[in-house]
């Protein structure tokens, strides 16, 4: 699938990147136009904060713009762009977590981490689902969060997420599994009480490949 450039009317991403490298001023804009919505979704999901996500997205596009000549052609442009966005987000997360407040190995849930993580899920009452989910994600180690954002939240295939994260598919699966287990106590209050476990959801199940 790397080199397939079917006779589709639309210019392939790789061709656009090549044209950009040749000095075509509009080629990169077209790439941005094509991918920004998807990449925004990644950034906002990973970072949770609009301002930060916006900055990360802009940084990522700038570094892709500057580093376009380093694109080596064996990956898909979309994968490459995702990596750059993930890296931009990762940098910000790391900076945010200078204090080792988020556990990485063991099960210790740092309940004090609301200092840096904004609101904590309120187990007693209703609150905005998005906020709760984001707050819950704050409890995850970065690797687990990245895997869950791509696979569970945005419905990427495990294989694609693995390429983006540059790890084996099995690693993505186990990170997702650990992340889900860790999120469990924070999301119980969002379950539909009395409902069958098979709550239909628009994107649910997208993670299965």
């Amino acid at each position: 699938m790397n080199t397939v450039t079917d006779a589709v009317q639309e210019i392939p991403d790789k061709e656009l990147l090549f044209r950009h490298n040749q000095g075509d001023e509009h080629a990169f804009n077209e790439l941005v136009r094509r991918h920004r919505a998807r990449l925004w979704a990644v950034a906002i999901r990973v970072l949770g904060d609009q301002e930060e996500a916006a900055d990360a997205l802009q940084d990522a596009f700038l570094s892709a713009f500057r580093g376009a000549h380093r694109f080596r052609g064996e990956a898909m442009v979309s994968t490459w762009l995702h990596r750059i966005v993930i890296n931009a987000c990762h940098d910000r997360l790391r900076r945010r977590m200078v204090r080792p407040a988020v556990p990485t190995e063991d099960h210790t849930l740092d309940l004090l981490s609301n200092e840096h993580g904004g609101s904590v899920p309120d187990p007693t009452g209703r609150s905005d689902t998005s906020l709760d989910v984001h707050a819950a994600l704050e409890y995850l180690p970065v690797e687990q969060r990245l895997a869950l954002v791509l696979v569970d939240m945005l419905g990427y295939r495990v294989e694609d997420a693995a390429k983006i994260l540059d790890v084996a598919p099995g690693t993505v699966k186990s990170r997702c599994a650990r992340g889900r287990a860790r999120l469990l106590p924070y999301l119980v209050h969002l379950r539909n009480p009395g409902d069958s476990p098979d709550v239909p959801s628009p994107k649910g199940g997208g993670r299965r490949s």
Partner: peptide, 25 residues
């Protein structure tokens, strides 16, 4: 319950891009 975690995550809407971000980029 674990499966539901996936469902909850998948059904959380993605906030739209903030106004002006496209132009800013």
């Amino acid at each position: 319950a674990l499966r539901e975690v996936t469902q909850i995550l998948a059904s959380t809407p993605v906030p739209p891009m903030p106004d002006g971000l496209v132009e800013r980029i």
